[in-house]
Design a protein around this nucleic acid. Structure first.
Lengths: 216, 216
DNA sequence: GGCAAGGGCTTTGTATACAGAAACCTCCAC
DNA sequence: GTGGAGGTTTCTGTATACAAAGCCCTTGCC
């Protein structure tokens, strides 16, 4: 693996996991020494982070980790609604019914996963990403998938803001089942609606959690 | 201006204007000598082009200019529909009515511009970008605007595929006027519908033109 | 005491030299 | 004649040295 890839992956993970919180300045020499690579590949890594929107080049002062606040959260979910709604609609038009019917069944069984502890939650997250991947695959649109990929980096970042509570995950599982069912039924309008509902609920929950944490 | 910025802008323009057609290999030394910059800033430029999706790093053989065919056109417009539809809806919710009412009037007067020759067409294109900018501004969503910006690079590239014929531009002006009117009326659903119609017609026209050129 | 200008210092931006890897061509064997 | 293996060549990937630009601190003047 290339040194620039390693540096990019390391910095990206650290930003996503809030080990490098917003506002952190990433000086080139400092980071290159820390990560054990030269400045050249590190610069390439920083450029990619900037393209992802995770950092911004504050001219002269080095690149800084971008902020992500409550306001950004709403904006992020507006974009997410546009992209995931379209992806769900396209998947409903083009996808294999059997694939999504199977995923629907898994989500309806998810209550079993979520009564357990950590490994169960991990299995649930895995199920969610399998649905995402299935939608991406069925949508069959490279540009849309790329845009979603860019978006998801930021979504993972905000997810780490608050621990998911089991009650919300259970509700989300039902919403995901509805989305999968709509796609399996080849009903694009329903798929869009189900996606909109799910994202609305997710955003509400996140914002409520955020306000709680702020109050502490 | 930085050398890497110059290299990026130069290569990007050349790709967009089809001076570097799809499949062209961009060797680092060759391009750095041609553009009069060192390999380091050139590599940064190539990385940015890759992030834009204009080039793909064919491992070992250097980066090549990505292909853009009729199939890609449909995919591109699917993404465009999702993003511009959402942007129009948000603009209808949040925008200043007066701004879009004025733009509507300009589009309704556009027949005057389009009866003239080249300078008139240039003025029309300028009007279109002013509408885009107004929508971006009114949507007030940095993530959405960024996604649109990424998309537009590819759109400019396909526009160069075929010369716009005056009849289509005239029809497009009417469609744009309808979009602006919907936003001015603060009617998000109508704005989405008008955008969908416009994009559908544009795609149909482009595909028809493409088939003609293929037949020649 | 406050403001501005200048110098030092840290920072990024660029160039070049070197190392490693992959592709292609050639030559040999079958 | 064809296939494979080895060598050569050219490419990308990385490191480091140098240049330039911006910021901060200090100092002098008002």
């Amino acid at each position: 693996m290339r040194a620039s890839d390693r540096a990019y992956a390391a910095l990206r993970d650290e930003i996503i996991e809030w080990k490098l919180p917003p506002g952190t300045v990433l000086a080139e020499v400092e980071q290159s020494e820390r990560l054990g690579v030269s400045r050249t590949p590190l610069r390439e890594a920083l450029a990619r982070l900037g393209a992802d929107g995770l950092t911004a080049a504050h001219a002269g002062r080095g690149v800084v980790v971008t902020d992500i606040s409550l306001d950004h959260l709403a904006e992020l979910f507006e974009l997410r609604e546009a992209l995931e709604g379209k992806a769900a609609a396209l998947a409903a038009e083009r996808g294999e019914s059997a694939v999504f019917a199977a995923l629907r069944a898994e989500f309806e069984d998810a209550s079993r996963l979520l009564t357990d502890t950590d490994p169960g939650r991990h299995a649930y997250y895995d199920l969610v990403s399998r649905l995402d991947a299935a939608v991406d695959d069925a949508a069959a649109n490279a540009y849309l998938v790329q845009a979603l990929k860019n978006l998801r980096v930021h979504l993972v970042r905000v997810r780490r803001l608050s621990l998911d509570d089991p009650a919300r995950l259970l509700a989300a599982a039902t919403e995901h089942a509805t989305i999968a069912a709509a796609i399996a039924e080849r009903n694009p309008a329903l798929a869009v609606a189900a996606t909109t509902v799910h994202l609305h609920q997710s955003l509400r929950h996140l914002q409520a959690t955020q306000r709680e944490e702020k109050a502490l």
